[in-house]
Design a binder for these strands. Sequence first.
RNA 1: GCCGCAGUAGCUCAGUGGUAGAGCGCACCCUUGGUAAGGGUGAGGUCGGGAGUUCAAUCCUCCCCUGCGGCACCA
Length: 649
Amino acid sequence: MSQISLTFPDGNARDYPAGTTPAQVAESISKSLAKAAISATVNGAHWDLQWPIDADAEIAINTMKDDGPACELIRHDLAHIMARAVQELWPEVQVTIGPVIENGWYYDFDRAEPFTPDDLGAIEKKMKEIINARDAVRTEVWTREEAILHYRRAHEPYKVELVEAIPEGQPIRMYWHGDWQDLCRGPHLQHTGQVPADAFKLMKVAGAYWRGDSSRPQLQRIYGVAFRTRDELKAHLTFLEEAEKRDHRRLGREMKLFHFQEEAPGMVFWHPDGWTVYRQMEDYMRRRLSKAGYKEIKTPQVVDRKLWEASGHWDKYHENMFITEIDEEHANEKRMNALKPMNCPCHVQIFNQGLKSYRDLPLRLAEFGSCHRYEPHGALHGLMRVRGFTQDDAHIFCTEDQIESECAAFIELLSDIYRDTGFASFDIKLSTRPEVRVGSDEIWDKAEAALENAILKVRNDYEVDPGEGAFYGPKLDFKLTDAIGREWQCGTFQADFNMPERLDANYIGPDGEKHRPVMLHRAILGSFERFIGILIENYSGRLPFWLAPRQVVVASIVSEVDPYVEEVVSLLKAAGLRAEADTRNEKINYKVREHSVGKVPAILAIGQREAEDRTVTLRRLGEKETRVLSLDDIVATLAQEAVPPDLAG
RNA sequence: GCCGCAGUAGCUCAGUGGUAGAGCGCACCCUUGGUAAGGGUGAGGUCGGGAGUUCAAUCCUCCCCUGCGGCACCA
């Protein structure tokens, strides 16, 4: 038998017979390592201890100390253990597929009866029994025919389909825990007892389509989370609770920012404080866009179907559009209109008014475009997914040569805005040409290169998603990261070679001939509604001072000082601050608590002392300490703080 | 749109086949209190909508609406 050389992480190499498994390698090093081993990393690939190694390789033996492999194996084994538990409890249930996901795993089952919360408890109990049984994990490679035959006999049609879908040349592996077996690419642990029995939890049951296809049967998915230790699990559950506390729907209600109601699902009722936040953002964006050379416009809400047919949206999206029909009695002709679901066709109409010269380009038309889309009702989610929303939309009409500089300027603008709103880091994804597309390869080459070069002016790291561009042009997506590490896709920049063609936009070039402009669709916030939702969650409702709907509350301690309180409030208001008085017959403790809960960033308490000295006592949100300041000082300090970031020197 | 769960006072929730309850909030009264809930009294509910079963439905059944968790979708 031939020898192979295995190189360890410390650089030492040893010879082994070809076909040696990592388990044998571990055994050759020490008994304790053999016992602690969970998997190996072979030439960078995650490798089962039972898989033979046939050639020279770099190898590392993994134990539970290796975070990445450990969590992956624990979650993956738990997926199998759960499937086994379910089949032991309900033998008629069909198992389908169960991958590892962030923080855990899920497994999809086909079962006539829905799983109940009680069922989850029973499954969890059964899983612990399986773990405690310390069943050895065994693996074999089967032929496709064997696997298909096996699953046909077992009446597991989903598995048959999975086996059939495994690409030629890839091994078809079976794994056993005790008597239970599952198709799996592996790797897995040595035995079920290596899974920590106290560091996982079944979370919820949900419907999910087989293979993600809504035309196929719907299965029942059970989600679980798992970690290496009980403490890690606890920390994760605490994180989920924290995330729930910053849910913008709850904070929106508590802070009296907005509400929704049955009569207008997916449409926001903005309350005074919520609308204040909205207006601050809108004013801020207006200044930013204006400074960046955009011209603001406003286009109609209700537009004849003909325009949507011309733009091509009717064909594809009319089921998702709000349609209006005029009562025939009152209309001199019957017309079918749609609430605009997007702004671009209207922007082209403005571009098309009058002859445009190449000297007019790039023409940047911005609109806070109020759009309506009939979103499927299961998709609605607070401010994050609504049916009526306002995009910070703009379209740049330019030449092919201008794409790069426009894109670079856009990325710079977007960075500034994300930084100002508290999002220091964001990711960029470039989506390139799909199979089905309009436009020549030349223009795609040029546009893709333009977007890529524009990114490179700012940074080196970005993701490429090949083939994921729109049929009408390549695009960039921008994902920002919030305070608790969640990512939100907000910004987008899309080149469009199609719309100008469809709606016959053109300009006169230096050659005196007509040319097609390229249209760049772009948004930074995405929609004001959603972005404000993200802001609320990012800050847990404690919005930065310039955005806070109520910036200062001046609270009286005794009613004798009410006139002075009013005086302070009017001074603050005169300085442009959003201030209000709280002279209610309540104790200062009560007022401080209430305004703290209401996330007011500055509370000024006024008692006899302050009234006599003409001072205020400032208490910042979240701080216990108070500070006595003169009237002039407090007005100057807060007024300074209230200056929006783009205006601050 | 699909699967599952839910809808009782402004909010959070309890409850029952015989037309309902708590805490907070709200109103009024007492209290003028120095930095995260002072005390008392009171008002407030077609029990999501419709139909059915029943002598009787908030409760049981069916349909619809809305919300929640996923899935699918997101120009």
